[in-house]
Design a protein around this nucleic acid. Structure first.
Lengths: 225, 225
DNA sequence: GCAAATATAATAGTAATACTATCATAAAAA
DNA sequence: TTTTTATGATAGTATTACTATTATATTTGC
């Protein structure tokens, strides 16, 4: 992805962190190091102690930024949703046909991620892998309602709403726009994971991005014009 | 669900447990107690110590059946997939039209679960809630490839294959049958979870089971006859 | 009916995890 | 230059996720 803006910052809900990791060098090292380490060993094996060793800091210092590894995972996931919304906003400008806009939106949401040099402390390829394999853990937990009340999922809801609006523009009678969009987003993550680890649960097709094509067909096929 | 057979046992891959929990009273108490406790406090908070206290046994005794709580979650999830395949097999007999069979299959896979008195040591309603909120953790972990090699996911693959076969019967040219089926199964779980906890990510409609209807329309809409 | 095998309970112990607390020092801001 | 703030260094705790050992109760084989 080309560098679109040089001074943009993805905002993440303030309640997720104790101290904004974007505000200091150590904070940025925590984010960069976490993305590297979670991608490498998985969220269950990931600890603040291992992270601190990796980035040359201490466990106690990491705890000054996040009060748990769960919140750190929430942070990087919300950052990802914020980044996706930014990609969508840019990707959809100047496309007047709502069908084309929807198709492009689905492509942006489901395609394989390439590195984005705009945000130097984030490796978007690793981040995408983490979101695919780990991010559902941020809501599949007993604290989900509390976290929802705290507004943690606004970024995700905004993204879903933005695409739902395009769907309603195409077919104002359509009854399930949010269901359709969240099915596409979550579904694409699952299919990418299955393609890598459990291929008999999906259909990998040589020479085409079957996942993106599948969800584009699915969405357009559902809507009347 | 009425009692279809009185002497049926859902088989679970032997590598998942150290000793078959179905073979003893304690084993059955472990399963029943786990389903109650995981449903109540969530998988992260669940420990063998708490479980042992609940069922009046000891931590060490539970460890004789399962070598980790992860394997116990795998066990109850595989039991659930086995149970679903049994429900599918019964639910689809004597329906000759493949379209009707597919519709019925999607209903069985996505509808709200009612208790099944055939298996007395399993509360299917709680089990369904656990599968919805926790089961993706059995493959979203770094050991997924190993566990796949051990055959843990056969039950799930069989289920997906069984429904894919109906799809191919309807439209032999259709390119994404497995993707469609796994999208429906996983999607329905997500949508049920969202309806409960994050309703703005889905569309709850009074008086209709929107989730089942949505996925039925989605599937039939994709296929040419 | 008794010995042998097996299953469970009771208890103890360990390394790692997920934190919290304290204090010293270095760097930045007032 | 003083004060605040950020980080590092170190220590400590309760809990978790196990493993090991021994005693006792129950079942099975003969």
């Amino acid at each position: 992805m080309e560098n679109l803006l040089s001074n943009i910052k993805i905002q993440v809900n303030e309640k997720v962190y104790l101290k904004d990791p974007d505000s200091s060098e150590l904070g940025q090292k925590i984010i960069r190091g976490s993305i590297d380490l979670i991608d490498e060993i998985g969220f269950e094996q990931f600890t603040f102690k291992k992270l601190a060793a990796d980035i040359g800091s201490t466990e106690a210092s990491v705890y000054r930024y996040f009060d748990s590894k769960h919140h750190l995972l929430v942070y990087i996931t919300l950052w990802y949703w914020g980044w996706m919304e930014y990609r969508l906003a840019f990707g959809l400008t100047n496309i007047s046909s709502p069908e084309k806009r929807l198709k492009k939106a689905i492509k942006i949401l489901t395609e394989v991620i390439e590195e984005d040099s705009t945000f130097s402390h984030v490796n978007e390829i690793k981040l995408n892998r983490i979101v695919i394999s780990e991010s559902s853990k941020i809501y599949h937990c007993k604290t989900v309602d509390e976290e929802n009340t705290a507004g943690f999922f606004h970024a995700y809801k905004n993204l879903v709403q933005r695409v739902s609006d395009i769907i309603i523009e195409i077919d104002p009678e359509y009854k399930y726009p949010h269901m359709l969009v969240s099915t596409i987003i979550e579904g694409a993550h699952h299919q990418r994971f299955f393609a890598e680890h459990l291929p008999r649960l999906t259909d990998v097709i040589e020479g085409e991005d079957a996942i993106t094509v599948f969800y584009q067909n699915m969405a357009l096929g559902q809507l009347k014009k």
